[in-house]
Simulated scan of single mutants.
Amino acid sequence: MTMDFVTPLDHLPRRLWDAVIDGDEHAATGAVRRALDDGADPEGVLLDVIAPVQGRVGREWAANRISVAQEHAATAINERAVAAVAGHPAVRTEPTLGRITVACVDGEWHGLPARLLAEVLRLRGWYVDYLGAQVPTPHLVTHIHRTGPDAVALSGSIATRLPTAHATITACQAAGTPVLVGGAAFGPDGRHARLLGADAWAPDARSAADELARRPLPRPRPDHQPMDDLPHLSDQEYTYVARSRPRLVRAVFDGLEAAYPAMRGYDELQREHTAEDLSHIVEFLATALYTDDGELFGEFLLWTAGVLAARGVPASSLLPALELLSRELQEFPRAAGVLRAGSARLTRTPLTTAGTTE
C-alpha cells in the first residue's frame, strides 16, 4: 500500500495561475503566504512557481489568448507575489557573503527576472542592491563607485538592448567591478555574453546564484583595457542601419501597399501596428549586425511570424517587407545577407503560433 504525500508546492502553481489570470492579487499573495506558512521552500516558490507562471503569461500573450492589459496586470500580480515571499518572516536571512548590485540594462523594462534573482541572492545570504528596470549606465556606475559591490548582475530580456549592455559591461569593468549577465537577450547558450566580454553568464537565477557562490568573480585589473569596437563593426553597417531606422521604416511602409495589397484595407490601428512591427524588424537587424549573428535575426522573425499568425495575419506578410528593406540596403553586404537568410528561414519553416515550429 502506498501513500501519496502532498507538499506545500503541489497545488501552488495552479492556484497562482488562476489568481493571476483572474486579476486577483489577494488570492495570489494569500496562496503564496499559505504555502510558506506550511513550510514551502522560499527559493522553490520564487523559481519553480512564480517564474514559470510568468513565463506562461508571456506565452499566452504571444498566442493571443490574453490581452496586453491582462499581461500587464498578471505581471504586476506576480511582482506582488515575489514581494509576499520577500516579506514573509520565514525568509529573513542575515547577509554574510558580500554585496551584489542587480540591475536591468538601460531600456529593459522586464524587471521581474532581475527581481527574482535579487530575492534568491538575499535568501542565499548576500547583501543585495536591487536597482530595478531600465537603469542608465552612468547611474549604475555612480552607484558601484559609492557602494563597492563584489559584482554587478546585469539582466536583459530583449536582444535589441545588447549594444547598450556592451557599453554597460565595459563601464562597470572600467570601474573595477566584474559583471555577471543573464536573460534571454544573451542567448540560450550565453554566446552574446561571451562576445560582449562579460565576466560570467548564467541561464537562470538559480544558476547565477550558484555561480556567485562557487567562486568570487575576479575584479578587472587596474590596467584593464575595455574592449574596443568589435572588428566586424568597422564596416559601419550597424551604425548606418541604427541611425537610419526612421527613414528605413518610412520607406518600407510606403512601399508595402503596392507590394502587399491586403494592407490597403487596413484601418488606422492596423497601420500603426504595421509601422511598429517594421521598426522592430529594423532594430533587430541592427542588433544582428552589431553582434554579427544572423541567427538572432532569424529567431526574431520566426517569433514575430508566430505572433502575427496567432492574430490572423499570415507569416508570408513579412516577406514583402523584408524584400523592400533589402532593396534599401542592397549596397550593404552584411545586412543584405542577414535579410536573405531570414527570408529563406521564414519560407522554409512551418509555423504554428508564437514562433513555435511544427
Rank of each mutant, 00 (worst) to 15 (best):
L256G: 11
P52L: 10
G98T: 10
A305Y: 01
L162A: 13
F186Y: 15
P226I: 06
R340L: 03
D277V: 02
L162W: 03
T142H: 11
V338P: 09
R311F: 05
G255K: 11
R327Q: 06
L230R: 11
I281M: 09
V102H: 01
A286Y: 02
A354Y: 06
A35H: 00
A259Y: 14
A174W: 15
T304K: 11
L154Q: 06
L296E: 08
R15H: 05
A258V: 08
A258P: 07
L47I: 07
R215V: 07
L233Y: 07
G306E: 00
L325Y: 06
R146N: 13
F332Q: 06
D129T: 06
V91K: 07
P220L: 09
L324Q: 07
R115M: 00
P333M: 01
A62E: 11
D37I: 02
A133R: 12
L346D: 00
N78S: 08
T287G: 07
A200G: 07
G107W: 02
A51P: 01
A209R: 03
P149M: 13
V282A: 12
D150N: 15
P52E: 03
D38L: 03
D267K: 06
Q270M: 10
E211D: 01
T287Y: 05
D229N: 11
R194H: 13
T137L: 13
G156M: 12
A90K: 12
R146D: 15
R191P: 04
V152S: 05
D189L: 15
L325C: 02
V82M: 00
G30W: 00
G312C: 00
F300Q: 02
L117F: 02
S343V: 06
L248G: 11
A90Q: 03
S317Q: 10
R124V: 02
Y238A: 04
L121P: 05
D267Y: 08
L322K: 09
V181F: 12
D37L: 01
A288T: 02
G30Q: 05
E71Q: 15
V307L: 01
L319M: 02
L131F: 13
H273G: 01
A184P: 00
A259C: 09
L346R: 10
A76L: 08
T177H: 08
L154D: 04
S279Y: 11
D204F: 06
V241M: 05
G111S: 15
V85L: 06
P163Q: 04
G30F: 03
V91I: 01
P95I: 05
S343D: 00
A315Q: 05
T349H: 10
P320G: 10
A275D: 06
H143L: 13
P350K: 04
R80Y: 04
A151E: 09
P350V: 09
L180I: 13
G87I: 00
G294Y: 14
R99E: 14
A321C: 03
A151W: 11
P350G: 08
A76E: 00
T177K: 15
T304E: 05
G111C: 05
G44K: 06
S326A: 04
V85T: 03
T347E: 08
A103M: 04
A251H: 14
L217C: 12
G176C: 09
L217G: 04
A315Y: 11
A205W: 03
A27H: 04
L131K: 15
A205Q: 12
A209F: 05
L16Q: 04
A213Q: 04
R34W: 00
D129A: 13
S326M: 04
C172I: 11
A40V: 01
A213H: 08
